[in-house]
């Protein structure tokens, strides 16, 4: 009897693979979270309050905006609505990721791993899928948890160190500050295809235009939506 060859599908990535995949995110998060911790204590928050914001909100730009709003004396209700509006862009990430992952993926624990679906985690997960990796919730947990812990640790160290901790090392501060732009560019290269170029160009131009006209928040929203709308006029690219 001839043995029937069995198919060996690509294995689903593990929790550990997610932890390793989160290394560049963590390297980028640590200095930014550190800066947030420093800024929060400068704004008059205690170290515990700074860490609480990172633990509970876990959205970098929104947290910095929260500080600005609190310093300006905005009422907490107004601040809350502003920050919620700022984070609404995240509604696109889950469906975009799962659309790429395929129709039959298990999302039973999405209530937990989706908490960590930040801009960078989304970009890294999407890049991995675009490079042929399969979707797995364990990978998402590894990716999200590592990034989350980096964010909290960075905040705590920044709040503990206080203002001016990196003042003596401007080149180190600059290099760390370029970590996230470098990560976004590398992720962009990893998912780049000819069909995506119009999407990327329109997103970039609209981001610059709306940032200059209105604000960076509107720029980000306009860039994402306009780029995605360009996709309506082309075939689905895989």
């Amino acid at each position: 009897m001839t043995a029937v060859p069995t198919a060996h599908p690509i294995p689903r990535p593990s929790f550990g693979a997610g932890v390793i995949g989160a290394i560049p995110i963590s390297l980028g998060y640590l200095p930014i979270a550190f800066s947030f911790g420093v800024a929060a204590t400068r704004a008059g928050l205690t170290g515990a309050e700074a860490v609480m914001l990172s633990v509970v909100i876990y959205a970098g730009a929104a947290q910095f905006l929260a500080l600005a709003l609190l310093i300006s004396g905005a009422p907490l209700l107004v601040a809350a609505f502003t920050l919620i509006a700022m984070n609404i862009r995240h509604v696109l990430y889950g469906p975009a990721l799962l659309e790429r992952a395929g129709r039959d993926v298990d999302t039973g624990h999405a209530w937990a791993w989706a908490f960590g679906l930040t801009d960078e985690v989304f970009g890294t997960a999407l890049g991995a899928l675009a490079r042929g990796q399969r979707f797995s919730q364990a990978f998402m947990f590894g990716l999200g948890l590592t990034a989350y812990l980096s964010w909290i640790i960075g905040t705590a160290v920044g709040a503990w160190a206080g203002g001016g901790a990196l003042n003596g090392y401007p080149a180190l501060e600059a290099g760390l500050g370029f970590m996230l732009p470098a990560l976004f560019l590398a992720l962009l290269l990893s998912i780049l295809s000819g069909a995506q170029i119009p999407v990327i160009l329109v997103a970039g131009v609209c981001t610059v235009a709306m940032t200059l006209i209105a604000s960076s928040t509107w720029g980000i929203l306009a860039g994402m939506v306009s780029g995605a709308l360009v996709g309506l006029f082309r075939k689905v690219a895989r």
Partner: peptide, 8 residues
């Protein structure tokens, strides 16, 4: 499908 590249 275009949301990801546009977002990044």
């Amino acid at each position: 499908a275009s949301t990801g590249p546009a977002a990044i």
